[in-house]
Design a protein around this nucleic acid. Structure first.
Lengths: 192, 192
DNA sequence: CTCGTTTGCCAACACTTGTTGGCAAACGGT
DNA sequence: ACCGTTTGCCAACAAGTGTTGGCAAACGAG
């Protein structure tokens, strides 16, 4: 299969789409704007990807690329996870496109769900003292990691934006570690 | 100031707007749909509120209504905060409208920032061992609370949706408590 | 070179959006 | 009963959207 000339264009469209979707969200990112960024005619986007939804699906193809943590000591998995998320977030705007879109488009939300269930789930399954709690623990981890991404990259809450990476890791690691391996203390749920 | 007949209409529009903004987000919620829900002509929405942005501003007028925690024992503030957020979230769709919109509209994001800085900030200021860390601690609390809301109400991650309130309180209270009063352990940030 | 295929642009469609102006009906103080 | 004000609807606009079809130029195997 020889490299066609169109592959360059296809890649340019995908790059422009990712950027627009990431900063503007699905509805505000227009095909025309994406095409302009890619220095191409809007109609080309249609011929290459069919329609806007399919374009988004192609642009938001995402993998958390979680490292293999089976060799990591139990008590350090939380820190390793937080550290990985932090680095993964910074460079790739694909996840931001997905997050911004998942808020209003059900299809994107579904993909987000499957990503987190499929990738954090197995880790939680291996870490959890009780296998029945694995899904819950994966969900708890997701709340903290996605909450951080939301506040830092989307809402841009100043104190969260300015948080140095090492400090973020220091704060969030114990949280994630507890969500994965800790016991729930129902003492806190008493209404007092 | 006697009650005008238009007050009813105004309220109906606001209620419909809140619902649409909450479920669809700013761009997908159309004036026409909101007007239809309120059983009114679209042009009336304009006369009452000027334009769509002003309508959103009126509909998303929000207050966290945090309780006075000055009498609450230090070690129970985290649980009290989590419990309050949980209850506040369920009943009012205004915050969801704000969250869904803040993801794509800068003005809404700014309001979100001021709400959290203005409301959690003072609590963090009173709780933090070091006053200089107050803003950071408030931000950390925001990541966990907003992350929970995002996963439960917007993305609808199944394990987070199914989490019973008491259990959610039990899991998140220690986290929030630590963000407010705990010490950061830089041990976790070492790259190992 | 030849000619089918690929790659691209232009123009236009059908539709939805926020928004506006005019006009009819209901209201309400005098 | 009168008449200015309020409340409402209808029709339309201008702008922007995703999307389509046709046609020209570049390509590339024979």
């Amino acid at each position: 299969m020889t490299a066609r000339r169109s592959d360059t264009t296809r890649a340019a469209i995908l790059a422009a789409a990712r950027e627009r979707f990431a900063t503007d969200g699905f509805e505000r990112a227009t095909i025309r704007a994406i095409a302009a960024d890619a220095r191409i005619d809007p109609s080309m986007v249609m011929r290459y990807f069919g329609n806007k939804e399919a374009l988004f699906a192609a642009a938001a193809d995402f993998d958390l690329r979680l490292p293999d943590l089976s060799e990591t000591p139990r008590e350090e998995v939380g820190a390793a996870l937080v550290r990985h998320f932090l680095h993964r977030w910074e460079g790739d705007e694909t996840l931001m496109a997905l997050l911004r879109t998942a808020v209003t488009k059900e299809a994107a939300a579904e993909r987000m769900r499957s990503i987190f269930a499929g990738q954090i789930g197995p880790i939680a399954a291996r870490m959890s003292p009780d296998p029945a709690q694995a899904a819950t623990r994966a969900g708890l981890v997701a709340t903290q990691m996605l909450g951080f991404a939301l506040c830092r990259f989307v809402l841009r809450l100043p104190p969260v934006v300015e948080l140095p990476p090492e400090e973020a890791i220091a704060w969030f690691s114990p949280t994630v570690q507890r969500y994965l391996t800790g016991e729930v203390d129902l003492y806190f749920s008493h209404d007092r």
